[in-house]
Design a protein around this nucleic acid. Structure first.
Lengths: 200, 200
DNA sequence: TCGCTTCCGTGCGTTAGCGTACACAGCATG
DNA sequence: CATGCTGTGTACGCTAACGCACGGAAGCGA
C-alpha cells in the first residue's frame, strides 16, 4: 500500500528499481503546489524537476500577444521539466498548476547525473517524453480539427484521468485560458454537456 | 567543403566527433526519396532512421476520419524516427516526403546501440528532439490562434529554411493536406501573398 | 447592510473558414 | 483531334467561433 505522501505515488518514481530509487529518495523534497503556481517560466533556466503525486500541471505555450494555449498536461504519471535532461537550457513553455496538490522535486543536477548513468530512470524518462510528444501531437490535431465541445470533453477527460476523485473544481475562465478559447464558448459547451449527464 | 552526396550534409551527422562518425559511416545507406514517399506509417514498427540531406519530410498526425495535420517538418537539421531511440516501439504519426531529395538511412538497432553508449550522438539527438518538441508546441499554438494566411506563411518559411534554393515546387492541394485546411483557402491566401511580393 | 469583486449566463453582430459547385487552363494519352 | 486528368481560380451559402456588452448571482470585507 502506498503511504500518505509517498513519492512513489508518482508513477515514474514507482517504476524505478530499488537501488536507483534509494539513491534519489533522500533528495526528494515534498512541496505543496497551490493552484496557479508557476513551476517553469518561459525562457527561464530551471533549477528543479517536479514529480507530481496528486496535482495536475499544465504546459502552456504563451504568445507575445499574451494569449496562451495548453499543449500538454502532466499528472502523477509524469514529470515537469523534461528540457533539463533533454539538453536545452531553457524551456519555451510555461508550466502552471492546474489543480492544487503536492509533488516531489529534485535538484536538476541530481536528475541529470542519474540520467547520464544510462540508468533505468533514463529509459523511463525518455519513454515518458515520447508519450508527452504524442500528447502534444494530439493537441495540435485537436486544435485544428475539433470543435470547441470536443476539445472541452478531451480536456475534462485528460484532467479527470489524473485526479483521484471524479470531481474537478475549476472556473470556466481558467479552462478557457488553458484551451485558448473564449470564456463564453466554454459556458455554452458546458451547458450542452450538462444537459446530457454531467455536473458543473 | 562538403562533397556531393556527403552524409555530413546532415547537420546531426556533421556534428559528431570523428570517431563516432567513422563508426556509423560504413552503415549509412544513401536513399533517394521521391515526393510522397512514406518513411513511417502510423502504428508501424520502423526498421530505419533517416538523416535527410536535401529533402524535406513532414510529420503528419492522421485521424480516423482520414484528414491529417502536419505537426512538424524535418530537413537536413534533423532525423526521422526519434521514437526508435526514445523507446516507443511504434510511432503515432506518419512521415512522408514533402520535397524529394536524398537521405541516409541507418538500421534502427545500430542507432540504438550508439545511442546507448551515452555518446555525443545521444546528446545531439536528445537536443534535437527537444527542438522538435518546441516546433510541435509552436504548431499547436498556431493551429489555435493564427489565421490561415499566417499559417501558410509559417509553413512556407519552415520549408524554405530547409531547401537550398528559394524555389518550392508544390501543389496547393498538397499544402492544404499538410496544414489540414481547405484547398481553396490556400488558393486565396496564396493570392494575397502574390499581390504583396511572392511568386507562385 | 452596502458595496465590491468574481464568476456564470445570454444575447447580438461580425467574420474566418468550411462545403459544394463549377469553369478554365495545361498536359498527356487514346 | 477528342478525351480525360490534374491543378487552379471564383462564387455562394452556412456555421462555429469571436468580440463585445450586458445582467444576475454568489461571496466577502468594511
Amino acid at each position: 500500500m502506498a503511504l500518505l505522501h509517498d513519492p512513489r505515488q508518482n508513477h515514474l518514481l514507482a517504476a524505478l528499481p530499488r537501488d536507483e530509487y534509494e539513491r534519489l529518495a533522500p533528495h526528494l523534497e515534498r512541496v505543496e503546489l497551490p493552484l496557479g503556481a508557476s513551476l517553469v517560466e518561459s525562457g527561464m533556466m530551471m533549477r528543479h524537476v517536479y514529480f507530481p503525486t496528486d496535482c495536475i500541471v499544465s504546459l502552456l505555450c504563451v504568445m507575445e500577444a499574451g494569449d496562451s494555449t495548453e499543449i500538454a498536461v502532466v499528472g502523477a504519471e509524469g514529470i515537469v521539466g523534461i528540457s533539463l535532461f533533454m539538453g536545452g537550457e531553457t524551456t519555451p513553455s510555461r508550466a502552471i498548476v492546474q489543480s492544487a496538490g503536492s509533488a516531489y522535486r529534485l535538484k536538476g543536477q541530481l536528475l541529470k547525473d542519474e540520467f547520464d548513468r544510462a540508468s533505468a530512470l533514463q529509459f523511463k524518462l525518455l519513454r515518458y517524453t515520447q508519450a508527452l510528444i504524442t500528447q502534444m501531437a494530439q493537441t495540435a490535431v485537436c486544435n485544428r480539427h475539433h470543435s470547441l465541445d470536443e476539445q472541452l470533453c478531451r480536456w475534462l477527460l485528460l484532467s479527470l484521468d489524473r485526479l483521484p476523485t471524479n470531481e474537478l473544481v475549476m472556473t470556466q475562465e481558467l479552462i478557457a485560458n488553458m484551451l485558448g478559447v473564449r470564456r463564453e464558448g466554454v459556458t455554452e459547451s458546458a451547458g450542452k454537456l450538462q444537459k446530457a449527464g454531467l455536473i458543473a
